[in-house]
Design a binder for these strands. Structure first.
Length: 521
RNA sequence: GCUCCUGUAGUCUAGUCCGGUCAAGGAUUCCGCGCCUUCGACGCGGUAACGCGGGUUCGAAUCCCGCCGGGAGCACCA
């Protein structure tokens, strides 16, 4: 009974208690949580839960990995459990190679996401462990050594046809397995296969490979090992050896559950339960990881923090906090449907967190120089609020006219009309646009706050060049207000009417514009 | 093709296990209005969903059957 009560999630418990206590309340239905649903972990004992993160080290963590991170972290917190980082750096394949630089990169990404593993393991350190386990499977009659070429193996599998090796006796298998270990075979010449059922309705499940031979040079252990486990087998072993209590992973790995269970059943082991989440795609994140890898390697992308990678570090670069990402991701719960979400939802989550604390600054893209005639005296500078609602964010003093820069787009279709330079004065624009390169001559009209189109402006005095890195990797050049000279790297600012940006690099007068990365509107 | 997973508004999600309290809640988007010297924020209002067809039942988003749609796996990758 007590256990039953403990199993009720906090909010629900409060709700139930409220119901018990307030028979007359009859208030509107309790607002559903904004987040998604996370089922309780079966058999989980608070304080005893052990989870694992198993990235393959072939790149920086991207937004999709975020789901792995934050879901596991969520459960870890709920049950006061542990998380191990287990690098899934088995040998991979020619196309999928382990690279040393990514171990550190991934650990950094985890740290930035606030996920501190209780331990770090490398699969490549654990290779000899797998051999006795393979032998146990063999001794249970659950595996055989197959020397069919990969193609034939695949074809037989598709048709449910057994090859000659399948009928191997236990002694023969042992002998062949010993020969594999003794380097009698080259890469691709022999594999240890699980003996399942060739009539299994799922063709993917028929006699899958457990271990195979590879001579690829591993960045951590070189060519020390030739017999490498496949992912499923390695986890059938390590989920037990590392004492993992719950395996929570993407649903692309469901067949691996079945493999692991099959092996455990064979050996009489009760393994941990599995939980899955569905595929998450962010609509704007179109670049596949493999393409991102190539573009980063070739220098087409600006490293792993290039916005086009949608890596965690690229989000950070853009001023999108890991807290916002976490809230965004947890809002989907453990749904198994495959979903595609617009980035706007993430932006909204981030906006909630930074809007109230972010100072406003002026920036104009594609600037047009405007000279204001009859510019009033005594208005050489003006004091502006750093935030329209938050007085506590203070003010700043910026130089004004009589020369200004306005955004070309803002001027379109406004010839001959009166417009307001936001927070400052009203001017009348000339009806004809002068030749390119020539300044526009406008005329001061009044200072009263009229309800006419308001334009963002930058006073020519002290204006400095700004370069915005966009999310497609494009650059937008423009001019920013003088106070941006003090902007420091990692500052988050809002360019009014443009969006939130994060400063990348100080302005270096005469040599380099102020570099910022665009976050979101 | 086979296997598995999955279908609630434009997009996510709660509710489905244990049918009524759901004329379906929340978030986001979009539209309108208000407000502030932002195209942002905030406030108010609005549009908008149980994939389809049968069945069971007094009553179905919820149970049963059939159909249709979406996704993933079918590597000696992870």
């Amino acid at each position: 009974m007590v256990a039953d009560v403990l199993a009720i999630p906090g909010p629900e418990l409060a709700d139930r208690l409220a119901q018990l206590g307030g028979p007359e309340a009859a208030r509107p239905r309790e607002a559903a949580s904004t987040g998604g649903d996370f089922p309780d972990l079966v058999g989980a004992v608070p304080g005893k839960v052990v989870l694992r993160l198993a990235p393959f080290p072939s790149g920086a963590l991207h937004i999709g990995h975020g789901r792995m991170l934050f879901i596991n972290q969520h459960y870890r917190e709920q049950y006061r459990g542990k998380i191990y980082l287990v690098f899934d750096d088995t040998i991979g394949s020619e196309e999928k190679r382990v690279e040393t630089e990514f171990f550190g990169l991934i650990e950094e990404d985890l740290a930035s996401a606030g996920v501190r593993p209780d331990a770090v393991y490398y699969k490549s350190d654990r290779i000899p462990n797998f051999y006795p386990w393979a032998r146990r499977v063999i001794d249970k009659g659950g595996a055989y050594v197959c020397t069919c070429p990969a193609e034939l193996l695949r074809e037989n599998r598709a048709h449910g046809v057994a090859c000659a090796h399948r009928t191997q006796t236990h002694d023969e298998t042992v002998e062949e397995w010993e020969r594999m270990l003794a380097n009698a075979y080259g890469p691709g010449e022999a594999v240890l296969r699980l003996r399942t059922n060739l009539a299994d309705p799922d063709p993917a499940f028929r006699d899958r490979v457990l271990l195979r031979i590879s001579d690829i040079d591993h960045p951590r252990v070189g060519t020390k090992y030739r017999i490498w486990p496949m992912l499923e087998f390695s986890w059938a072993v390590d989920d037990i050896e590392l004492g993992i209590t719950h395996v929570i992973r993407g649903k692309d790995l469901v067949i691996e559950d079945r493999m692991q269970r099959y092996i455990w059943d064979l050996l009489g082991i009760t393994g941990p339960p599995f939980l899955h989440w569905g595929i998450l795609r962010v609509r704007e994140a179109k670049v596949a990881k493999s393409k991102a890898y190539r573009e980063v390697k070739s220098g087409q992308f600006d490293g792993w923090a290039d916005p086009r990678t949608w890596s965690l570090r690229s989000l950070d670069r853009r001023g999108i906090s890991m807290e916002a990402l976490r809230a965004f991701i947890l809002s989907f719960g453990m749904s198994l449907s495959d979903i595609e979400v617009p980035a706007e939802t993430l932006y909204s989550e981030n906006r909630k967190r930074i809007d109230a604390t972010t100072v406003r600054r002026a920036f104009v893209a594609d600037p047009v120089r405007v000279e204001v005639e009859a510019f009033p005296d005594g208005l050489e500078t003006v004091v502006l609020a750093n935030h329209p609602e938050r007085a506590e964010l203070g003010t700043r003093r910026v130089p004004t006219g009589p020369e200004f820069f306005l955004a070309r787009r803002d001027l379109e279709g406004k010839g001959g009309t009166e417009v307001r330079l936001k927070d400052l004065i009203n001017i009348e624009l000339p009806s004809t646009v002068p030749a390119p390169g020539q300044p526009l001559r406008a005329r001061f009209t009044s200072r009263e706050n009229k309800r006419i189109p308001r334009l963002q402006w930058v006073g020519a005095q002290g204006a400095l060049p700004v370069d915005i890195l966009g999310i497609e990797g494009e650059h937008t050049a423009g001019l920013g207000e003088a106070t941006l000279a003090e902007a420091k790297p990692r500052d988050i600012l809002q360019f009014e009417r443009v969006g939130f940006v994060r400063v990348e690099q100080n302005w270096v007068p005469g040599t380099s514009p102020l570099r910022v990365a665009f976050g979101h509107p």
